[in-house]
Design a protein around this nucleic acid. Structure first.
Lengths: 225, 225
DNA sequence: TGACGCTGCTTACACTGTAAGCCTACGGTA
DNA sequence: TACCGTAGGCTTACAGTGTAAGCAGCGTCA
């Protein structure tokens, strides 16, 4: 029935697979359909290949997900170390946030992945280096890193789970939610929605800058032992 | 083969299912085996029931996950509103963190769930209320809430994804990672691991307090318009 | 009594990850 | 030139997933 051992047209040799191509296809698929769309068959299909072929380049689905997370980290702009540490941290945070918004599925994958890849390690090392260069002690750098990244991940985690992307969508969605909300039961929620979130010009994305500025302003190399 | 329409022993009527029991069983299962262990069949099995019976109380797996997240929020201690706002926020954050550590799977579920439940709404409302009572403007309360919760979720997200729970495990794991780490390639990572994380008495959990104090100290009702 | 609705059960289906094993093309050697 | 080992595809098969469709026993009300 099916031709056994399919033969390619002799002129057009098939582009050989490798780990990078597999991971790249998986990332593209996740961007398009979310993490649940990343099935071995779908990834293979988008490469014109059968599912089991992927196992020559990837240990399994888990390994593939690890690779995807590392590929995302590779996109984050590393601090160069020459600038003022606050500027460096702000730019790195902005870059990381932009990357994570481009790949919203990655935030949810951060937990449950326990094997950091090359890009992840390089990224962490560069950030620590920038903080050390900015005058932080070893412990201080570790703490500053923890505080900044916690805020960063947490903000993006909330941001990507919002059921809207634009402020036009926001108005629509918030209106819908609001109508189902009892002002007696949730007075403050109603207040903040109508008087703040639904005001023209509001964009939750702007809040990121407020928080980062607040945190960077409060972090000082001398404060942390 | 199997008796059709199984009849229970007449004396021992089966405890009837309801949404709360289903969600409760799912939470217990997730605590035990992680979120991937929450299959409809497994949840049903732990209740002595078949998978399809759950659909009488839950719209589907997605709805079940929504219910689980809401059940977790219900465990968080609400701010009472009478204390100093900084104390209230600190206690709420500590409580939330304790709850999320008890149910580590919940953090990863926070994104991808877009339908907040009763407990979630009540929780958000209470936090906003405490901030308003502390003197924050509507916009200021929204911002403070965003900063605090971003840090909270982000910290827990990192915390629960660490591949160890105790500092004994830490030593073991960090030692293993370290041995695979090239000091030339990742100098700062090696430095912070050996000189900080592997020092006796180190516990990443303690960093939470540092960050929360820093953020609460930097947040002032008057700063935010 | 009878009808009805609630709840749990059975069956069935499409789809998942992946183990096992087969086939072909390529590269190096005799 | 002929040979053969290996790498990287392919096929098949299986256990486990969520859930749609429909059946059976029970309690409640007319």
């Amino acid at each position: 029935m099916a031709a056994l051992g399919k033969v390619d047209a002799p002129g057009s040799r098939r582009e050989p697979l490798d780990r990078a191509r597999v991971v790249g296809a998986a990332v593209a698929l996740a961007d398009d359909k979310g993490v649940t769309g990343v099935t071995m068959r779908a990834v293979a299909g988008s490469l014109g290949v059968e599912a089991m072929s992927l196992y020559n380049h990837v240990r399994g689905r888990d390994d593939l997900l690890d690779g995807m997370v590392d590929a995302v980290f590779a996109e984050i702009e590393l601090p160069t170390g020459e600038a003022d540490w606050q500027d460096a941290m702000r730019r790195r945070a902005d870059s990381a946030r932009a990357v994570l918004r481009r790949h919203p599925w990655a935030v949810g994958l951060l937990d449950s992945r326990s094997a950091p890849g090359q890009a992840t390690l390089r990224h962490h090392d560069a950030v620590l280096g920038a903080l050390r260069a900015g005058g932080f002690s070893v412990a201080g750098a570790a703490r500053a890193f923890s505080v900044i990244d916690s805020y960063l991940y947490g903000f993006v985690l909330q941001e990507v789970s919002l059921p809207f992307r634009s402020s036009a969508e926001l108005n629509e969605v918030a209106g819908g939610i609001l109508s189902g909300l009892d002002a007696d039961q949730y007075p403050h929620l109603v207040e903040v929605t109508t008087e703040h979130a639904l005001q023209p010009g509001y964009d939750y994305a702007d809040e990121f800058d407020v928080g980062i500025s607040l945190i960077l302003g409060a972090l000082q190399p001398d404060d942390l032992p």
